[in-house]
Write a protein that binds this DNA or RNA. Structure first.
Length: 450
RNA sequence: GUGGAUGUAGCUCAGCUGGUAGAGCCCCGGAUUGUGACUCCGGUGGUCGCAGGUUCAAAACCUGUCAUCCACCCCA
């Protein structure tokens, strides 16, 4: 195969069967967003580079696809939806109903090395709420996530939450300088993967002493068997004592109150399996309050959804400050999970149409055409054979390959009696029916998605 | 961006220390001119990722390059 006929690095073509599954997952997510009152918007795939890079850190900046247009404007492809949302909101805020709840499902681009579950072009699905500082936003988003995952029949996942204000407080209490905060948090975030020694190494690499690691860990070490609320109350005392700077101390306490509020209410809506994880960090620089992450218990897949509060977002793009919080679903990873789980079911997913119409000769074509039209007007998907000289065996084989459930056969006999033969390809059963009877037998019934 | 593995038919892969390619599945045709998942018979299909080099001779060895996978980095 020559290089030219492959898709560019990190991009993919999707075959019809694969696409049917993708559509299914994405439509399920979309329906749930709508059920929770989010409205769909769209914004450009590319924005001014300066805007995309405004607050994302060097690492991410390297991953932005950039290009110049013919007037030498520097542009970049969106690498996620949050900064475009900030810009969108700043541009259109006067016209939007607040709190502004919007969803967006689309492609984003990252210039990074490819791997399983990591592409340069991939889908993301985001739901965000701008215009409220209240923690009920977090509750609603977490509930939405659980709702979507239930619809997709996900079982093996866990949701963990933390709060950036608390982390900032712990950093301060542990005596880690503000300038080294980022490096420290990144290392802490990896503790499950690289272990305690790995984190200490990372700390030292960035000029943070072992002692500071120990202080950090000591602050978030709790006796076994304590529930999350008790842990947070203990943490509050510790931070109250350890943080000298009043402003930072107040912030940290605020963060603790936020999580306590969320945890208290989570029980009421049946989400008490959500856990507080004092070491959860999350990437992206813009989070300011609670952060959360949903990950598969199958470690190799890792997290497939994440989000949090970023109250400084719209301010960053020139609008008056407003509370903002959102969640982002890694659609590709969720699709991978469904694919692994339902490998067989996926292969037999219907591609679209429920019914295939074969006529046996030119004489029956008009009759078949009318049958097809009537079915379609009734909302029943019907594909009409397009062969000039249909061979019934081949046509049935074609329908079978397209996973079409019913074949309508129209020959001389059918036309003469003004009826049709309806064959169920799954059961191989055949019925000689009027069109009306066929319609009631094949009418769409509500079927759950994946 | 760094390190490693891999690249042979549409798919999964075989091909030993160099001697100009093979299997299974798929596909197409027939046994079966109003009936598909089974059986049998026959058939199509590959400048061995691409470009150089070594050699009488390269799918195999060397170099470069592109792509995929894995680890790091980062993240969905």
């Amino acid at each position: 195969m020559s290089n030219l006929i492959q898709p560019p690095k990190g991009t993919r073509d999707f075959l019809p069967q694969e696409m049917a599954l993708r559509r299914n997952v994405m439509d399920t997510i979309r329906e749930c967003f709508i059920l929770y009152g989010f409205v769909e918007i769209d914004s450009p795939v590319f924005e001014y580079f300066e805007l995309l890079s405004r607050k994302c850190g060097e690492e991410i900046e390297k991953e932005i696809y950039t290009f110049e247009d013919k007037a030498k404007r520097k542009l970049g492809l969106r690498f996620e939806f949050t900064s475009p949302l900030g810009r969108y909101y700043a541009t259109n805020r006067e016209k939007l109903t607040k709190p502004f709840k919007r969803y967006m499902i689309g492609k984003v681009y990252r210039y990074e090395n490819t791997q399983m579950g990591r592409y340069r072009e991939f889908y993301q699905a985001d739901a965000d709420i701008i215009g409220s500082y209240d923690m009920s936003v977090e509750l609603e988003l977490l509930d939405l996530a659980v709702f979507i995952l239930a619809k997709l029949r996900f079982n093996d996942y866990e949701i963990i939450i933390n709060d950036r204000k608390i982390l900032d407080g712990i950093i301060n209490a542990a005596g880690i300088e503000e300038t080294k905060k980022g490096a420290a948090l990144r290392a802490i975030d990896k503790i499950a993967k690289i272990g305690k020694d790995g984190v200490i190494k990372e700390f030292q690499k960035n000029g943070i002493g072992r002692g500071k690691y120990n202080s950090f860990i000591k602050i978030v070490s709790f006796n076994k068997g304590l529930d999350d609320k008790k842990k947070l109350l203990i943490l509050k005392e510790r931070l109250n004592e350890a943080i000298k700077d009043e402003l930072i101390r107040n912030k940290a306490v605020e963060g603790i109150e936020e999580l306590l509020y969320i945890l208290k209410n989570i029980g009421a809506i049946g989400l008490n399996f959500i856990k507080y994880d004092p070491l959860l960090v999350r990437g992206l620089g813009y989070y300011t309050g609670p952060v959360f992450e949903i990950k598969s218990k199958d470690v190799s897949i890792g997290s497939f959804a994440a989000g949090g509060r970023y109250d400084n977002l719209v301010e960053l793009y020139g609008a008056r400050p407003e509370g903002a919080c959102g969640i982002s679903f890694g659609v590709e990873r969720m699709i991978d999970i469904v694919m692994q789980r339902d490998e067989k079911a996926v292969k037999s997913l219907p591609l679209s149409i429920k019914l295939y119409i074969v006529y046996l000769s030119e004489n029956e074509r008009l009759y078949a055409y009318k049958v097809a039209k009537t079915l379609r007007l009734k909302g029943i998907g019907a594909e009409l054979c397009v062969s000039g000289k249909p061979d019934i065996g081949k046509e049935i084989k074609y329908a079978d390959k397209k996973k079409i459930k019913y074949v309508v056969i129209i020959g001389e006999k059918e036309v003469n009696e003004n009826k049709l033969t309806l064959k169920n390809l799954h059961t191989r059963e055949e019925k000689f029916l009027t069109l009306e009877e066929a319609i009631t037998q094949t009418a769409l019934k509500f079927e759950d998605r994946m």
